[in-house]
Design a protein around this nucleic acid. Structure first.
Lengths: 110, 110
DNA sequence: GCAACAGTTTTACGTTCGTCAAACATTCGG
DNA sequence: CCGAATGTTTGACGAACGTAAAACTGTTGC
């Protein structure tokens, strides 16, 4: 059996700002966010994300933090998990915040 | 002698997004940010900030984190230190981010 | 001068965090 | 069925964090 399912995640209304900022206040997870900013689904391997230097369990840990903070959603399909940004939910919960964060993250030192 | 001086803080261009988010990803520091959002200067005592439950050294520690992240600036005047938000600098470095954060922080659970 | 004041620094301590390694599911392909 | 593939979970470890207490620095007022 392999119906699509989603890993546990907070409801939109339960997304907490401090928890979200704490989740994003880490270089690895900020890198993940930028990868997810394309709106597509990504699988979980370190190879897909320019994180070859990290162990797969470490990446798994970071993705759990992002998911539990409400940043991402994870769809289970077979032996793959597809992670994507909860853009609609985040925009509903904190209007303008995600856009500002992504814009800020794309700003080099100038 | 007591010319006004400012405690060390990063230049606007050196404000790092991840460092900033990490600084704000703590409940106490988020509370401080909201206090500073009025644009005025605040002294450092826990009493001024609804942080009576925290030791003054703890508050001092949190204010240092905020200052070193580029969130606040501290003006030294006599035996008082006046802390205020670096709104102009933050807006220049990350346009729209501070407003989005403050708006988000003011959003209750709804 | 000296005592009170406003904060910082230092030290200490328990907790959380980031990381890896190894063990553990679960699923797909032969 | 068996082995490879894809992640997760658990356990361990050092580093960083949040907090408080005590010692310290500099300032104001008497």
């Amino acid at each position: 059996m392999s119906e699509d399912e989603r890993l546990p995640q907070p409801a939109t209304a339960d997304i907490d700002l401090v928890t979200l900022l704490h989740a994003l206040g880490d270089p690895v997870r900020m890198t993940l966010l930028l990868s997810y900013a394309d709106g597509r689904e990504h699988s979980c391997g370190p190879r897909d994300l320019g994180l070859d230097h990290l162990h797969k369990s470490t990446v798994s840990h970071h993705m759990r933090v992002l998911r539990e903070a409400g940043v991402t959603t994870t769809r289970v399909a077979g032996r793959n998990r597809f992670v994507s940004l909860r853009r609609t939910d985040l925009d509903a919960r904190f209007p303008g915040l995600l856009d500002a964060l992504l814009a800020a993250a794309s700003t080099p030192l100038r």
